[in-house]
């Protein structure tokens, strides 16, 4: 299957531009395979992040035709024979070179709430064969989050507020409040109840659209708004 890859190029000290690479890949290939073909056959200076090739590490996120994608699981056949795929680095993150961004905005944000998705193995199951822990009526596995940062890239608020906690942090915070696991939830409430926290979200749901897994960060932020809002109302009337 023949494709043209129009790849964003940037080397420190030079002006950004696009280079177009014609590649021939099998119909079963994914976009990452096509980029690797261009790197392998045509230009060894193309820089891009990748590791696992199966949507597990979350390191290869980028834009294909202006939409956030994990190229390792984005089939080239979705774009058709002879298509030109415009490949850009993720938005809202500093570009180190070509398609490789400085991903520290992702990890700095997750560190703010204590890296909640790093956790011990447990027997919690979603198939209903085992009872949920006491106090939980339902749960969504936030551990689906790959920390790929595609939601940060897609979020329009991130384009103007570098201090915005962002969808992945707020979704993780909502997950923590639903299942605190011993963390200081007052600190989490203080963090998210802020002008750069949950109230900065303007509900465009681009994060949910961009998320390659079933994290639904936009929906989680709405649940978080409800939690924080109800808490403020209770506090206003003298409640805890």
């Amino acid at each position: 299957m023949k494709l043209n890859l129009k790849i964003y190029r940037y080397k420190p000290g030079s002006e950004p531009h696009y280079d177009t690479f014609p590649v021939d890949v099998p119909e079963t290939a994914n976009v990452l395979d096509a980029i690797e073909r261009a790197w392998d056959d045509l230009d060894r200076t193309i820089m891009f992040r990748h590791a696992c090739h199966h949507a597990s590490c979350g390191s290869c996120g980028l834009l294909v035709n202006d939409q956030e994608k994990l190229p390792c699981v984005t089939p080239v056949k979705d774009y058709g024979e002879g298509a030109t795929l415009k490949i850009d680095p993720m938005r809202n993150m500093p570009v180190i070179t070509d398609l490789a961004v400085d991903a520290s905005p992702i990890y700095q944000r997750m560190a703010l709430i204590g890296l909640p998705i790093i956790r011990d193995a447990e027997t919690l199951r979603a198939d209903g064969k085992e009872p949920l822990p006491e106090g939980l009526e339902a749960f969504r596995r936030f551990e689906n989050c790959l920390e790929c940062g595609l939601c940060l890239s897609a979020c329009p608020v991130m384009a103007t507020d570098p201090q915005f906690l962002g969808p992945l942090t707020l979704a993780a915070a909502e997950r923590l409040l639903a299942e605190p696991r011993g963390v200081d939830i007052e600190r989490i409430y203080r963090l998210v109840d802020d002008e750069h926290g949950v109230w900065r979200c303007h509900s465009s749901f681009e994060c949910t659209e961009a998320c390659p897994y079933e994290v639904y960060p936009g929906e989680a932020i709405m649940r978080l708004k409800r939690k924080v809002g109800l808490r403020k109302i209770k506090q206003f009337f003298g409640g805890a």
């Binding site: 938005r91 570009v95 180190i96 329009p156 103007t160």
Partner: peptide, 11 residues
């Protein structure tokens, strides 16, 4: 790294 340019027009 090439810094992020915060542009309100991105809205």
């Amino acid at each position: 790294p090439k810094p992020v340019q915060r542009k309100p027009l991105e809205w």
